[in-house]
Amino acid sequence: MSHHSTLFSQARSLIPGHVFQKLAQRHKTGRASRKFGFKEQFTVMDFIQLADRPSLRDALCCLKAASRRLYHFGLKNVARSTVADANTTRPVGFFRDLFAEMYGLCASKAPKHKFRFKSRLFSLDATTIKLCLSLFPWASFRKTRGGIKMHVPLDHDGHIPAFVAITEARAHKSRIDRTLELPRGSIVVFDKGYVDHNWFQALGARNISFVTRLKRNVVCTLLERRLVNRRSGVTSDHAIEVATRGKPLRLRRTGYRDPESGRRYEFLTNQFRLSAQTIADICKDLWQIELFFKEIKQNLRIRSFVGNSENAVMIQIFTALTVYLLLAYQKFLSRLDISVQQLCQLI
């Protein structure tokens, strides 16, 4: 049979075949399906993302129309009920682990962040995905609204998602810090919603630095004043001590005035080696994760879903983020001078 590789086949082939076999063996439940396993399920969900199909019925009709190419996709004609049942009953862990495997491949080829220091840099934030309460009753948020919250630490090496945690929409941001695992020696930047002094203690014990905005109501003791270069915009650089349930916590408070807007900001960190100007630049780069959320919501299907169960929604979200990593991986390998968003639109 003659083979003409399609864009879809090329994109999917970036995931090594042994990864599917390893994960399928890890998450198998009962007797494996000969015609529609985990790999085939991911292929269908991947097609929904790259082809921007609005529903499962529409996606399967498009695949059926290209029946001569299904062999090269690793697929056969499949009933809609088969895919729907798989999305409802099969473990989300397979798709979560597939995302983690793809991040490992992608991170090895990603360009380094723009700062001079060698430590890994991560931005941590969350975005809410709104859901119709009548269609998704398990995702109750308010009386007339439903939704879930997606927490993501963004790796600034390539600006790719490093980890994903999905919680109910009403869950506070600070709950996610207990499950977050970052490399030792890395730096994480986040907004005021994640401020937790006990977590700061835990980060310091793991040799992880943090940078965040200072809350107005923080109670602290001034320990030391450092010299600053006010021409650079830095207005203050202090060593302070804040009280916690355990030992007193020694931190650094820096002030910065934006030369463009004239607004003054205060930052809190446990990083004493970097300059105050670098601390301000790191906190300013937190905006990258907002751009990432905007990018995936505009170009991937994570606001409308092809299944109504909680399991189906989780599978679609992890598939979407795995597709984002696939596109970023292709971008890094090809050294394309375009964004992941432009590459997604091109495909």
Rank of each mutant, 00 (worst) to 15 (best):
H151W: 03
C220S: 14
R96W: 00
R178T: 15
D157F: 06
K118A: 05
I187W: 04
V242H: 11
L327H: 06
G37E: 09
V19A: 03
L70N: 01
Y265M: 06
V44R: 00
Q21I: 02
R31F: 06
R253H: 12
A312K: 05
A280Q: 11
L131G: 04
V189H: 05
S232Q: 12
Y324D: 10
S134E: 15
R301N: 15
L203K: 11
L63W: 07
Y329E: 04
L23H: 09
T179W: 06
S186D: 07
G74Q: 10
G255K: 05
R31W: 13
G147H: 04
S174N: 12
D337L: 07
A162F: 15
Q298R: 13
V242K: 13
V92F: 04
P259G: 01
S123T: 06
A239E: 08
R303E: 13
G307I: 01
K130F: 01
A280M: 08
T127K: 10
R301T: 05
F267T: 03
N308H: 11
R225C: 13
F267R: 04
R213N: 05
G185R: 12
D285L: 07
K192S: 12
T235Q: 03
D281A: 15
T235E: 09
V219S: 06
P248T: 13
G233N: 09
Y265P: 03
L124H: 10
A51S: 12
N87Y: 12
W138G: 04
K173V: 01
V323R: 08
K130R: 14
A100H: 04
I15A: 02
D85R: 11
R184S: 15
E295H: 07
G93M: 04
A107I: 06
I282W: 02
Y324H: 08
K114A: 09
H172C: 13
G246V: 02
L56M: 10
S33E: 12
G147I: 08
V219L: 07
L286P: 00
V83F: 10
L56N: 04
R250S: 12
C62R: 15
T221R: 15
A169P: 00
R264I: 13
M1N: 13
I15D: 01
S67A: 11
K35F: 08
Q25D: 13
S309Q: 08
N207D: 15
K22T: 08
E181T: 14
L249P: 14
V152H: 05
F293T: 04
I15P: 00
L336P: 00
E310A: 04
H27P: 00
V83C: 02
H113I: 02
F36A: 02
F47N: 03
W287D: 07
A239I: 05
K39T: 06
A239V: 12
R12A: 12
R184V: 14
R53E: 14
V152E: 02
P111I: 06
K109R: 15
R57A: 11
E40F: 00
Q345Y: 12
E290I: 13
T269W: 05
S119L: 07
S67F: 10
K331A: 01
A79P: 02
F163A: 02
